[in-house]
Simulated scan of single mutants.
Amino acid sequence: MQNLQITAPTSRPRIPSRRAATWWMATFLGIPLAGYAGWLVSGPVDSVGAALLGALITGAALGAVQAWGLGRNRPSAAAWIAATTLGLMAGLAIGAAIVDYDTNLTALVVQGAISGLAVGLAQALVLLPRLGVVALAWPPALAAIWAAGWATSTAIGVDVDQQFVIYGASGALVVTALTVILPLALNRTDKDAS
């Protein structure tokens, strides 16, 4: 009789950090496209209903683009998309209502911080099994980063009075560059597991 050996599954192979960062940086284009799609469906974010509908479309598209950008080292794509969608729906509905749907710089920075915090909380739940307690740093980091995204888009003259769902391409570039640590951290955990 042969001995059957049962071995634990091996970790995912590590991809080069440069490639992980490049894939993630490519996702910046998905942010304004996802936001524009959400805004086309919901119209201006001037009510809770518009915020929820716009965030539903934007969050699902953004989550899908980010899941692609995280590559093979990502957590479950379905969980990531759901977390991003639900987080953005809660965050935008609360954040936009708190600032009374205003579009001045301060209001959009506050709205961005609340939206980023909510998305970060939801995503941290998905990241926790992979990153451990380090995932708890994601919500406050994302709050600050999304605030910076809105500040950037507003400062360069994007017509924010149209009450968009999410910051534009310039803000997306800043946000994506500042969050590139995520695919690198996920890639690192796979290296450490091997």
Results as ranks from 00 to 15, higher is better:
122 A>K: 01
110 V>S: 07
41 V>G: 07
186 L>N: 04
66 Q>R: 09
21 A>H: 11
1 M>R: 11
132 G>K: 07
92 L>S: 08
40 L>E: 11
2 Q>C: 06
54 G>P: 10
75 P>Q: 03
109 V>P: 01
68 W>L: 13
62 L>A: 12
64 A>I: 05
167 Y>C: 05
176 T>F: 01
161 D>I: 02
142 L>T: 12
3 N>A: 15
49 G>C: 09
75 P>D: 04
32 P>D: 03
47 S>P: 09
45 V>S: 02
47 S>F: 03
53 L>M: 13
68 W>P: 06
166 I>Y: 02
28 F>W: 05
89 M>Y: 02
64 A>Y: 04
114 I>T: 02
145 I>P: 00
109 V>D: 14
111 Q>F: 08
185 A>M: 14
20 A>Q: 12
68 W>E: 10
28 F>M: 14
152 T>D: 01
166 I>M: 13
37 A>W: 01
129 P>V: 08
30 G>Q: 10
164 F>R: 03
185 A>G: 12
139 P>W: 09
48 V>T: 12
140 P>T: 08
115 S>E: 04
96 A>L: 10
23 W>N: 12
7 T>P: 01
41 V>W: 02
13 P>Y: 00
99 V>T: 10
87 G>C: 07
163 Q>T: 14
76 S>H: 06
8 A>N: 14
160 V>Y: 00
27 T>C: 13
181 I>W: 08
76 S>I: 11
44 P>E: 12
37 A>G: 05
104 N>L: 07
78 A>Q: 08
104 N>R: 13
5 Q>I: 15
189 T>L: 05
45 V>W: 01
4 L>N: 11
170 S>W: 13
162 Q>R: 14
17 S>Y: 08
75 P>Y: 00
192 D>F: 03
5 Q>V: 15
161 D>K: 08
122 A>T: 04
148 A>C: 10
119 V>Q: 12
93 A>P: 02
30 G>E: 06
189 T>E: 14
51 A>C: 09
193 A>C: 06
16 P>V: 08
107 A>N: 08
69 G>C: 08
62 L>Q: 10
139 P>Y: 10
21 A>M: 14
1 M>D: 14
65 V>Y: 00
102 D>V: 07
186 L>H: 00
176 T>G: 06
8 A>D: 14
10 T>P: 04
102 D>K: 04
31 I>E: 01
49 G>Y: 07
89 M>I: 13
133 V>F: 07
173 L>S: 10
107 A>Q: 03
42 S>P: 13
188 R>Q: 13
34 A>D: 02
128 L>Y: 15
99 V>F: 03
138 W>I: 07
137 A>V: 09
69 G>A: 08
53 L>D: 03
91 G>T: 06
100 D>G: 05
45 V>R: 01
61 A>K: 01
136 L>T: 04
156 I>G: 10
52 L>M: 14
98 I>H: 06
81 I>F: 04
8 A>I: 13
120 G>W: 03
134 V>R: 11
152 T>P: 00
192 D>M: 11
34 A>R: 01
99 V>Q: 06
172 A>I: 03
86 L>T: 12
45 V>C: 06
10 T>Q: 14
140 P>R: 03
172 A>L: 09
127 L>F: 15
191 K>M: 10
61 A>L: 15
34 A>V: 07
149 G>W: 00
14 R>Q: 12
48 V>K: 06
